[in-house]
Nucleic acid binder design. Sequence first.
DNA 1: TCTTTTTTGTGCGATAGCAGACAGATTAAG
DNA 2: CTTAATCTGTCTGCTATCGCACAAAAAAGA
Lengths: 233, 233
Amino acid sequence: MSNKSIIVTENEILNALPEEDFARISAHLQAVELPSGRFLYQSLQPITHVYFPNDAVASIVANTSAGRSTEVGIIGREGAVGLDVLMSVDASPNECMIQIPGDGWRIPTAAIRDEFKLGGAVHVSFLRFIHKLIIQISQTTLCNRLHPIEERLSRWLLMSHDRVNGDEISLTQEFIATMLGVHRPIVSISAGILQAKGYIKYSRGHIIVLDRQGLEKLTCECYQIVKNEYNRN
Amino acid sequence: MSNKSIIVTENEILNALPEEDFARISAHLQAVELPSGRFLYQSLQPITHVYFPNDAVASIVANTSAGRSTEVGIIGREGAVGLDVLMSVDASPNECMIQIPGDGWRIPTAAIRDEFKLGGAVHVSFLRFIHKLIIQISQTTLCNRLHPIEERLSRWLLMSHDRVNGDEISLTQEFIATMLGVHRPIVSISAGILQAKGYIKYSRGHIIVLDRQGLEKLTCECYQIVKNEYNRN
DNA sequence: TCTTTTTTGTGCGATAGCAGACAGATTAAG
DNA sequence: CTTAATCTGTCTGCTATCGCACAAAAAAGA
């Protein structure tokens, strides 16, 4: 009886591992609650664990010293948080926080490094995910520069929706504005437009996605480009 | 007598390799001219070689189907182009082209993969560079969203200047506008402001950096954040 | 030298998004 | 039920940048 049959996870990286690789890792896995706003690592502070979200969603955020922020990437059940430690660094100028609460697993930095060094399935699948993340961040760079707010908001909702169970996303406009790097009233107006079209239902910190196809039609191509990369192999 | 003493390179990744690792790699190195506009790889096309620029500078560019573009990263002598192939992928939705001509080395994808698999100094230093690049792209994501054009232009000039020999950067406003993802006349005005301050001298496709410190004072903190990451270890 | 092409400077109207403020609505707390 | 806190919709003025256009300047080619 393998550990895999005991540890039930929704995390797709863990799930995709061959049984023997998973068995070695599972010895180090710790179940964690991931409440909203929890920092998984902070700017230039040591990254102590790598996290594997189940239904939680995390944001990688860059900050200015003037206190403004933008999300540069989003990680949920399809990936892992903190893989920076596999690239011979202990910290990042960015920070990572839980955007949508849930739970997940974590593993200490030293243990994941040992496993990575073995060069097996873990090595391949983690590098593959790092590449997907690079593409996501790259596309966000372009999107931030060239695309209007409604398309960006739609994309952001779709990417969050892809990573949660159900159709509800619980977040204030203030938070969304911070993630998108725009003025808060802009979110109010844009979300109002999406609601008027019937794509979402919005009320005091609770968004319900009503019509994914509507959002997909409205959003920029960035959504699909990143999705294609995530779906590759 | 090692190959290292025969092959003279300005590329810092190659230079930093221990002699025996370099010796194995050098057997596969091909000297290449890198003329302006040359594509090192194109969107979703196979990446056939990894390139190590000497004095050439390459841009990683993301495109929209509508024909607009933005630079997401810049790579020169401090790095290598096409390391995507080490992450179990053969292609990227982005493209990479030579922005400032010069020369460099290249090595076929298969050879670099073999070397990477050995897990030695090459493995460490390439992963380390991938992380630096991720931080550069992340910071560009924030910068594109939050910082005004003059600061972004200054940063871009500084990053290019860091990677060339001498103080001249030969590029049209049209090209710079494409890289920064802005309207061309905006570049005309911004560059005029930098020139009026005496930081640069501009004339028909030739920029001469006159006062780095001036540019460093004017640019946003993004420049230093990325530079710190590149200087780490 | 003359002509053509490329590159740059500049202008104008339109617009998206910023900065700050404020009141109404909803939720939470006492 | 009452009060306080939080969240959202809306307004006003303001600025940066876009979109488009066009002419001047410089370089390249004939």
